[in-house]
Simulated assay, not measured.
Amino acid sequence: MNFWMRRLRAALPWLLVAVLSSGTVLLVLLPAAWITPVFTKASGGHVNLVDPAGSLWHGSATLMLAAGSDTSAATLLPGRIEWHTAFWPLFTGRVRMTMLQSEAMPDPITVDATGRGSTVSQGTIAVPASLLSGLGAPFNTLDLQGDVRLAWSDWRSFGKQSFGQLTVTLTDASSRVSLVKPLGSYRVVVQAEGDSSTIDLSTLKGPLTLNGHGVLGGAATSFNGTASAAPEQRDNLAGLLNLLGRPSGPDTVTLTFAH
């Protein structure tokens, strides 16, 4: 063994330490912006983290939600969403993050992702009613106001398939096109079942009754339901009912959508 080989053999352990140390430092210093595009891509643009600060391990961002496919109609939530990322699961190819939104989310949630899919633990969050305008007509015309809360079960995604339940509760809703305030309180339940989902609309209380059922899928989307007015609000709600659908009976219109 010549002189240079002996020197190289003696220095090799130190080189390995230097490489590992540099890699660890780079890993620790990964900026928060590194993770934000992952959420946009995984959610199809519905969940976006903007104005990130901090690092991959402990950072924060503003949460921007888009209800429909038009991301230009996304809604910024007040406050910041903060996260902590576990270090050791990364060595098994898993990203595990604990997230909490400071003003709208009462309890933290866990995001667990691998190359095969991801799971978001159950949780709830309060969102502005303006988020519903992103769904397009008739929501953008109605300009609904009220308290909106999203609640979901463990939500699992594998490629384009999703499994879980999302419940949207709109309490004491009102609209700029109606003088009746409030119109009522409503619940929408979306059940994701792989390539397709079902949607059920029901009324909790109020003079405007909304009910319906639909199917959301890649090939076709359809919804059928009814809207009706309480007798004592018949005249006041006539204009709103005409805006929602076609007359199908006394104080009742049909709600239909197909794509």
Rank of each mutant, 00 (worst) to 15 (best):
A73M: 15
A73W: 10
A74K: 03
A74H: 03
T75S: 13
L76Q: 13
L77T: 06
P78F: 10
P78I: 11
P78M: 13
R80A: 15
R80T: 15
I81Q: 03
I81V: 13
I81P: 08
E82P: 00
W83V: 08
H84L: 02
T85I: 00
T85K: 00
T85R: 00
T85E: 01
A86R: 07
F87W: 12
W88T: 12
W88P: 03
W88S: 08
P89M: 04
P89V: 03
P89T: 02
F91Y: 09
F91H: 04
T92R: 09
T92W: 14
R94A: 02
R94N: 03
R94H: 01
V95K: 00
R96P: 00
M97L: 08
M97Y: 01
M97W: 00
M97V: 02
T98K: 05
M99Q: 04
L100N: 13
L100R: 07
L100H: 07
Q101T: 08
Q101W: 11
S102D: 13
S102V: 07
S102I: 02
E103S: 13
A104I: 04
A104W: 02
A104L: 09
A104H: 09
M105K: 08
M105S: 11
P106H: 03
D107V: 06
I109E: 12
I109A: 13
T110M: 08
T110V: 15
V111Y: 15
V111K: 09
V111N: 15
V111M: 13
A113K: 09
A113I: 05
G115H: 09
G115R: 09
R116P: 02
G117K: 10
G117D: 11
S118I: 01
S118M: 04
S118Q: 02
T119W: 01
T119N: 04
T119E: 03
T119D: 01
V120M: 08
V120Q: 03
V120Y: 04
V120H: 03
S121Q: 09
S121K: 01
Q122V: 07
Q122D: 11
G123M: 06
G123N: 13
G123V: 07
I125P: 10
I125Q: 11
A126I: 11
A126E: 12
A126C: 06
A126H: 09
V127L: 06
V127E: 11
P128N: 02
P128L: 10
A129T: 10
A129R: 04
S130W: 12
S130H: 09
L131G: 11
L131E: 11
L132H: 05
S133V: 07
G134P: 06
L135R: 12
G136Q: 05
G136D: 10
A137I: 15
A137Y: 08
A137K: 13
P138I: 10
P138S: 13
N140F: 14
N140S: 09
T141W: 01
T141N: 05
L142H: 02
L142I: 06
L142G: 07
L144W: 06
L144D: 05
Q145F: 00
Q145H: 09
G146C: 14
G146A: 14
V148I: 13
V148P: 14
R149Q: 15
L150A: 04
A151S: 14
